[in-house]
Each structure stands twice: as structure tokens, then as C-alpha cells.
Design a protein around this nucleic acid. Structure first.
Lengths: 249, 249
DNA sequence: TGTACCTGTTGATCTGGGTCAAGGCACCCC
DNA sequence: GGGGTGCCTTGACCCAGATCAACAGGTACA
């Protein structure tokens, strides 16, 4: 069976030896072949904006490796990040001609692209692709709504703690960091400015609150970017959420 | 042909005489009959919370008439609205057992419900239902991301102007208010407190900023709730967005 | 070796919006 | 009429976080 890079799931296919083989579990060889035909790769460097809001989009795609951000910028330069794209996340919107957001690589980035028109056609003729995309979109919607609570109602300290806990949790679920248990260690893929753009803060406030969390022993820094969380529960207690720490599935 | 209340669209079916007949355009009689079988209605009064976060969900549904809000509340009572549900909007998430948000009626409300399990089955066997739901979910995701910019980066005045412009635009597209042209008049379906919960403000700030916009001639109030906007462009200029006033499709 | 640049930290000060409090208006029920 | 009660407005004051500014590594390059 062919190996696909389309990352529609890393959960449904727990048994796959290759992480980013995804639709495979339900695709037949013919469908795989059709996906292979319209697929190509692109690589990007840190800081590179791969898609500008308003660009004509002739592809959709999926992050294979690296981290990218989805952001909106107002005329006067205020910017708000509206999504964090990690491996397996989908980029672009079927049916949309023009990009609505800027997509910027934060690290070295590899994307697996599919030509949009044939992909849309595939979606129409292959129901489970549309269904999988629906699940992913619903997940993103939940994440966006969780962010709305963070942006609208949390204090700066709670915002930072929430961001750290979300990145930690995602890293752990992708097998990147340590276990989700007590202690966890992970790399912050974002600069202070990017964190600020994500949280609706200024970079100075982010820096101060990170320092405060460090002083209070909630986190420890190993260099600027590597974060050690001695107790994930203690971090969660700083997020302001109830103790179960997230949406229920 | 049977008339459905499922409001998967009010755009695809512009030619339908009955607004909330939706999937009809692409459903055959057999599919319509299956939907009819699992469908029932529920009515609610203003202020009534029809779904509490954590409730077991045995249905999904669609707003037939009225306005409802989707909100999250933190342990200490801070609440953030994460969605405004108007006629044709979908309620619930296929595949989710427990509600993730509170749903509260703002006006008298009629909802058309479908039993969840058979609806999920229908989705699996009727691809264009899943595809339509995907489109709607993508639209909601865009709306949520627009809100993230509003919550994270806009001033109180810009937030109020944005809310008014969005409600005005949506009312106009549903044929409720006047034309989208220069002057428009519409009813605010929300209390000051609900507006505050939506915008991440306090009700006092909302009140002050509404008064300020009134003083500056951007809006006029006819009673507490009815809003007259002499110039929609002038209102848009207060939102901080670029002049085209919204996401591109 | 120097200087330029980038990222991050920290301090001093300012201010938009939060908080607390009083009061106004409309409506309802006794 | 009188007294609730719900919703809204306005005033006075305060504080979390923004703004402005200085400085400290790190590293790239001349």
C-alpha cells in the first residue's frame, strides 16, 4: 500500500508505522493513487511567510514537519494570531479561492500540498475524506473557541499558563516532548513577540509573566526556549480553567 | 416534495419559497423521508438555557427562529460568549456525547432537532449532508477567527462598532433589517451584559461606548434596543478593519 | 575587534477599561 | 399609589497591562 503524507489523522492510524500516513486506513489503492498524483512537497525557512492573506490559492495541504502560524494583521499593524499549525494540521480551505490569513513558518517547515481543484473533486467523490476533514475542522473550531475564552477573559498570567499548557499537551500527544505525567519538558516554538500576538498581549508583558512564573517555580527555563514544567497540575492551576483542563470530547 | 426544517443553507436554496427548506435541493425523497422520521421541534423562552456544558447530547439541531448564544463560563463566573446562533445555524456536534458549551435562548426560540445517532448515520450514508456541514463549520471557524482578532487586538469602541456591523450585516443577509445600503435599522438582540460577554468587556464599558458612538452620530438609538445606522460606511470606519469590511469568500 | 542586529529582560510611567457606587426609567404586581 | 425588579446610564477612582526606554546576551559579518 502506498504511503501518504496527507495527515488527516494521527489518531485513527495509531497502528501505522509511519506517522503521517493517514487516510490509508480507509483508502483503497485507487484513491491512494489519485492522491499521489496531485501531491507535491514544499519546504520553507523560519520567518518565511508562505501564504499572504488575499493570495490566490491553488492548493491545500498539510504540515508534515515544523510549526507555522496563522495570523491576521490590521491596517495599522496590530496583528492577532488565530491558529498554530503543527504537524498533521490542514492548511487552506476547500472551495476558497483567496487566502484569508497569513501563514508564516516559525521553524523549518515541510508541507505536503495537493492541487486544490482535483482535491476538491476527490472530496466530492470520496466521502470519508470529507468526513475526516469535517472532524478536523470541528476540532479547530473548538480550539478557536477555547482561544476566545483565553483572549476575552483571562489575565496575562493565565494566558501564558494556558499557552504553555496547550503547547505542552499538543507536543506530548504528538510524541515530541516527555510524558504528560508530572514533569514535562518541551521547546517553545514561538518568540516572545509571537506569543504576544497569539495572546493579545505585548511582548514586554509576555516576558514579565514568563519571568514571574519562573520565579514562582511553576516553570523553569533551560535557555530562552526550552521549558521544564515540574508539575503539570500546578501549571493547570494557573490557567484559571477547571481542573480537568480542557474540553471534553 | 417534503419540506425540511433543517437549515443547512439559506444561500444554496435561494429559490426555495420556504426559507428553512435546505437540503431539499439535493436530497431525494427517500432521504427527506428519513430526515423527517428523526426530526422533532422544541421551543424555548428568553433567558432559558437549553443546553448546559457537560450535558449528555442525544440530538443535534438547527435554529428555526430566534436568537441563542453559545458561551463558556469559568469557575469564578467569568463568562465568554463564543458564538451567536441565528436562524439556520447548527447546534451540537456530530460525534460528541457531551455538550462543550452552554446554549441560552435570547429571544423566543424554535429549534428543529434530529436524534443524534440516526443523524450521524445519515451523515455517513449521505455525502452531501456531510459536505454541507463541512462548509458551515468552515464558515463558523472563519467567524470564530474574526472574533479572535476583535477580542485580542481591538479597543472597546472598535469592538462595539464591529459587533454592530456584524449583527447589521447578518440581519440584512437574513432579510430581517433594512437594506445593506447606506442607512440601516435593526434590533439589537442582546442585552448590554450579553454584548459585554461577547466582546470581553464589562457592561459599563459597553454602555459608555454605545453612548459615545451615539454622541458622535455614528448610530442613533430608538429605545434601548433598536439601532439606526445613518451610514454603514461610517460604522465600518470605526471597526478598525480595512475598508472592504470582512473576510473574502 | 568592532559594530550591527536580533531577541529578550527589566524599569518607569501612563492610560483604557475595570470596579464600585448611585441613580434613572420602564414595567409589573400588590 | 407604592415598591419591586430588570436593564441601563453615569460618575469617581483604581489597577493591569500598554508604552517608552535602557540595556544585556548571542551571533553574524566586516
Amino acid at each position: 500500500m502506498a504511503v501518504l503524507d496527507i495527515q488527516f489523522t494521527s489518531h485513527d492510524c495509531g497502528s501505522c508505522p509511519i506517522r503521517h500516513r493517514a487516510v490509508c486506513a480507509r483508502c483503497d489503492d485507487d484513491e491512494l493513487a489519485r492522491l499521489e498524483e496531485i501531491k507535491y512537497y514544499r519546504s520553507f525557512e523560519p520567518g518565511q511567510t508562505l501564504i499572504w492573506s488575499g493570495d490566490h490559492m491553488d492548493f491545500v495541504g498539510s504540515i508534515v514537519s515544523g510549526v507555522a502560524t496563522l495570523s491576521q494583521t490590521m491596517e495599522d499593524g496590530r496583528t492577532q494570531m488565530v491558529g498554530l499549525l503543527l504537524p498533521s494540521d490542514f492548511v487552506g480551505r476547500p472551495g476558497r479561492e483567496q487566502a484569508a490569513y497569513d501563514v508564516t513558518a516559525v521553524t523549518d517547515l515541510t508541507m505536503c500540498c495537493f492541487r486544490r481543484k482535483p482535491f476538491e473533486h476527490l472530496m466530492e467523490t470520496t466521502p470519508h475524506v470529507a468526513q475526516r476533514l469535517l472532524q478536523m475542522t470541528l476540532d479547530e473550531l473548538d480550539a478557536a473557541r477555547e482561544w476566545m475564552l483565553i483572549l476575552g477573559r483571562k489575565t496575562a498570567r493565565e494566558k501564558i499558563a494556558s499557552l504553555l499548557s496547550i503547547i505542552g499537551r499538543r507536543d506530548a500527544s504528538l510524541g515530541l516532548g516527555g510524558p504528560v505525567g508530572d514533569e514535562m519538558v518541551f521547546d517553545l516554538p514561538l518568540t516572545r513577540e509571537a506569543m504576544a500576538d497569539y495572546l493579545g498581549l505585548t511582548l514586554e508583558t509576555v516576558s514579565r509573566q514568563v519571568s514571574a512564573l519562573k520565579k514562582d517555580g511553576i516553570i523553569a527555563l533551560e535557555g530562552k526556549r526550552r521549558v521544564r514544567v515540574p508539575s503539570y497540575d500546578a501549571l493547570l492551576a494557573e490557567t484559571g480553567d477547571d481542573s480537568d483542563g480542557g474540553l471534553m470530547a
